[in-house]
Protein backbone atom coordinates (compact mmCIF):
# COMPACT_ATOMS: atom_id res chain seq x y z
CA UNK A 1 0.00 0.00 0.00
CA UNK A 2 1.46 3.32 -1.09
CA UNK A 3 0.03 6.72 -0.26
CA UNK A 4 1.16 9.79 -2.15
CA UNK A 5 0.32 13.13 -0.62
CA UNK A 6 0.79 16.67 -1.90
CA UNK A 7 0.61 19.56 0.55
CA UNK A 8 0.27 22.94 -1.14
CA UNK A 9 -0.34 26.49 -0.01
CA UNK A 10 1.53 29.68 0.72
CA UNK A 11 4.87 30.19 2.42
CA UNK A 12 4.33 30.52 6.18
CA UNK A 13 1.27 28.24 6.40
CA UNK A 14 3.29 25.32 7.71
CA UNK A 15 3.01 23.32 4.50
CA UNK A 16 6.52 21.89 4.84
CA UNK A 17 5.95 21.18 8.54
CA UNK A 18 2.84 19.18 7.76
CA UNK A 19 4.60 17.15 5.11
CA UNK A 20 7.59 16.47 7.30
CA UNK A 21 5.35 15.44 10.18
CA UNK A 22 3.56 12.87 8.03
CA UNK A 23 6.89 11.53 6.74
CA UNK A 24 8.44 11.40 10.21
CA UNK A 25 5.48 9.56 11.62
CA UNK A 26 5.61 7.10 8.74
CA UNK A 27 9.26 6.44 9.51
CA UNK A 28 8.41 6.16 13.22
CA UNK A 29 5.89 3.42 12.61
CA UNK A 30 8.27 1.50 10.34
CA UNK A 31 7.04 2.52 6.90
CA UNK A 32 9.21 3.67 4.00
CA UNK A 33 8.85 7.40 3.44
CA UNK A 34 10.06 10.18 1.20
CA UNK A 35 9.58 13.90 1.60
CA UNK A 36 10.27 16.10 -1.41
CA UNK A 37 9.93 19.86 -0.92
CA UNK A 38 9.55 22.39 -3.67
CA UNK A 39 12.65 24.56 -3.64
CA UNK A 40 14.00 27.70 -5.12
CA UNK A 41 12.89 31.32 -5.32
CA UNK A 42 9.27 30.25 -4.99
CA UNK A 43 9.96 29.45 -1.34
CA UNK A 44 10.44 33.10 -0.56
CA UNK A 45 6.91 34.20 0.20
CA UNK A 46 5.20 32.64 -2.78
CA UNK A 47 3.64 29.23 -3.12
CA UNK A 48 4.97 26.34 -1.14
CA UNK A 49 4.40 22.67 -1.71
CA UNK A 50 5.83 19.29 -0.90
CA UNK A 51 5.22 15.68 -1.77
CA UNK A 52 5.19 12.89 0.78
CA UNK A 53 5.14 9.21 -0.10
CA UNK A 54 4.39 6.65 2.59
CA UNK A 55 4.57 2.98 1.71
CA UNK A 56 5.13 -0.48 3.08
CA UNK A 57 7.08 -1.21 -0.11
CA UNK A 58 10.27 0.29 -1.52
CA UNK A 59 9.46 3.77 -2.81
CA UNK A 60 10.25 4.51 -6.43
CA UNK A 61 9.53 8.06 -7.39
CA UNK A 62 9.46 10.61 -4.56
CA UNK A 63 7.30 12.86 -6.74
CA UNK A 64 3.87 12.28 -8.21
CA UNK A 65 1.54 13.70 -10.81
CA UNK A 66 -1.43 11.87 -9.31
CA UNK A 67 -1.56 12.23 -5.52
CA UNK A 68 -3.87 10.03 -3.49
CA UNK A 69 -4.29 12.80 -0.96
CA UNK A 70 -4.13 16.52 -1.60
CA UNK A 71 -4.06 19.27 1.00
CA UNK A 72 -4.58 22.77 -0.39
CA UNK A 73 -4.45 25.95 1.62
CA UNK A 74 -4.81 28.59 -1.12
CA UNK A 75 -6.69 29.05 -4.35
CA UNK A 76 -3.80 28.75 -6.84
CA UNK A 77 -2.84 25.43 -5.28
CA UNK A 78 -6.45 24.22 -5.62
CA UNK A 79 -6.47 25.18 -9.30
CA UNK A 80 -3.11 23.58 -9.95
CA UNK A 81 -3.46 20.27 -8.11
CA UNK A 82 -7.18 19.48 -7.82
CA UNK A 83 -7.41 18.06 -11.36
CA UNK A 84 -4.44 15.79 -10.65
CA UNK A 85 -5.80 13.89 -7.67
CA UNK A 86 -5.98 10.17 -8.44
CA UNK A 87 -9.49 8.74 -8.82
CA UNK A 88 -10.64 7.58 -5.43
CA UNK A 89 -8.38 10.10 -3.75
CA UNK A 90 -9.24 12.77 -1.21
CA UNK A 91 -8.77 16.51 -1.38
CA UNK A 92 -8.60 18.53 1.84
CA UNK A 93 -9.45 22.22 1.31
CA UNK A 94 -9.06 25.01 3.80
CA UNK A 95 -12.50 26.43 3.02
CA UNK A 96 -11.74 29.67 4.84
CA UNK A 97 -9.22 30.51 2.14
CA UNK A 98 -10.70 28.65 -0.84
CA UNK A 99 -14.29 29.40 -1.84
CA UNK A 100 -14.27 26.91 -4.70
CA UNK A 101 -15.69 23.41 -4.69
CA UNK A 102 -14.42 20.44 -6.62
CA UNK A 103 -16.72 19.38 -9.42
CA UNK A 104 -15.10 15.98 -9.71
CA UNK A 105 -17.22 12.99 -8.81
CA UNK A 106 -14.40 10.45 -8.74
CA UNK A 107 -12.71 11.93 -5.69
CA UNK A 108 -13.84 12.81 -2.21
CA UNK A 109 -13.61 16.46 -1.17
CA UNK A 110 -13.30 17.50 2.46
CA UNK A 111 -13.88 21.17 3.18
CA UNK A 112 -12.66 22.32 6.54
CA UNK A 113 -12.52 26.02 7.54
CA UNK A 114 -9.18 25.43 9.22
CA UNK A 115 -7.97 29.02 9.26
CA UNK A 116 -11.24 30.23 10.77
CA UNK A 117 -11.27 27.41 13.32
CA UNK A 118 -7.73 28.33 14.25
CA UNK A 119 -8.47 32.01 14.81
CA UNK A 120 -11.71 31.26 16.72
CA UNK A 121 -9.80 29.00 19.10
CA UNK A 122 -6.71 31.13 19.71
CA UNK A 123 -4.72 28.81 17.45
CA UNK A 124 -3.38 31.32 14.91
CA UNK A 125 -0.79 29.60 12.72
CA UNK A 126 -2.09 26.12 13.51
CA UNK A 127 -4.57 25.70 10.65
CA UNK A 128 -2.19 23.17 9.08
CA UNK A 129 -2.21 21.08 12.25
CA UNK A 130 -6.03 21.18 12.34
CA UNK A 131 -5.99 19.76 8.81
CA UNK A 132 -3.53 17.05 9.88
CA UNK A 133 -6.07 15.94 12.49
CA UNK A 134 -8.74 15.73 9.82
CA UNK A 135 -6.46 13.75 7.48
CA UNK A 136 -5.88 11.12 10.14
CA UNK A 137 -9.62 10.92 10.78
CA UNK A 138 -10.53 10.58 7.10
CA UNK A 139 -7.78 8.19 6.07
CA UNK A 140 -6.79 6.24 9.16
CA UNK A 141 -3.30 6.17 7.70
CA UNK A 142 -1.94 6.39 11.26
CA UNK A 143 -3.46 5.63 14.61
CA UNK A 144 -4.57 9.05 15.89
CA UNK A 145 -3.15 8.63 19.40
CA UNK A 146 0.18 7.42 18.05
CA UNK A 147 0.31 10.30 15.55
CA UNK A 148 -0.49 12.82 18.24
CA UNK A 149 1.94 11.45 20.80
CA UNK A 150 4.74 11.33 18.27
CA UNK A 151 4.09 14.87 17.04
CA UNK A 152 4.03 16.21 20.58
CA UNK A 153 7.15 14.25 21.53
CA UNK A 154 9.06 16.07 18.80
CA UNK A 155 8.48 19.41 20.52
CA UNK A 156 10.97 20.31 23.27
CA UNK A 157 9.35 19.62 26.63
CA UNK A 158 10.09 23.16 27.80
CA UNK A 159 7.78 24.63 25.16
CA UNK A 160 4.59 23.75 26.99
CA UNK A 161 2.45 26.35 25.22
CA UNK A 162 3.48 24.92 21.85
CA UNK A 163 2.67 21.40 22.96
CA UNK A 164 -0.76 22.48 24.22
CA UNK A 165 -1.62 24.33 21.03
CA UNK A 166 -0.56 21.48 18.77
CA UNK A 167 -2.60 19.03 20.80
CA UNK A 168 -5.64 21.30 20.81
CA UNK A 169 -5.37 21.85 17.04
CA UNK A 170 -5.02 18.14 16.31
CA UNK A 171 -8.04 17.29 18.45
CA UNK A 172 -10.06 20.07 16.85
CA UNK A 173 -9.23 18.79 13.36
CA UNK A 174 -9.80 15.17 14.27
CA UNK A 175 -13.15 16.01 15.86
CA UNK A 176 -14.39 18.24 13.04
Amino acid sequence: MTTRIIFAGSGGQGIQFSGKQMAKTGMHVGMNVTFLPSYGPEMRGGTSNCTVVISDEEIGSPSTNTPDLLVVMNKPSFDKFEPKVAPGGIIFCDSTLIDKKSERTDIKAVYIPATELASDNDLGGFANVIILGQIIKQTGIFDFEEFKEYLLSNIPATKTALIEKNEKALLLGYGY
Binding site: N32, V33, T34, F35, Y39
Partner: peptide
Protein backbone atom coordinates in the same frame (compact mmCIF):
# COMPACT_ATOMS: atom_id res chain seq x y z
CA UNK B 1 15.78 16.10 -5.98
CA UNK B 2 18.09 13.78 -4.06
CA UNK B 3 19.70 16.78 -2.41
CA UNK B 4 16.44 18.29 -1.26
CA UNK B 5 14.37 15.23 -0.47
CA UNK B 6 14.17 13.66 2.97
CA UNK B 7 14.32 9.96 3.67
CA UNK B 8 15.32 7.85 6.63
Amino acid sequence: ALGQMMEP
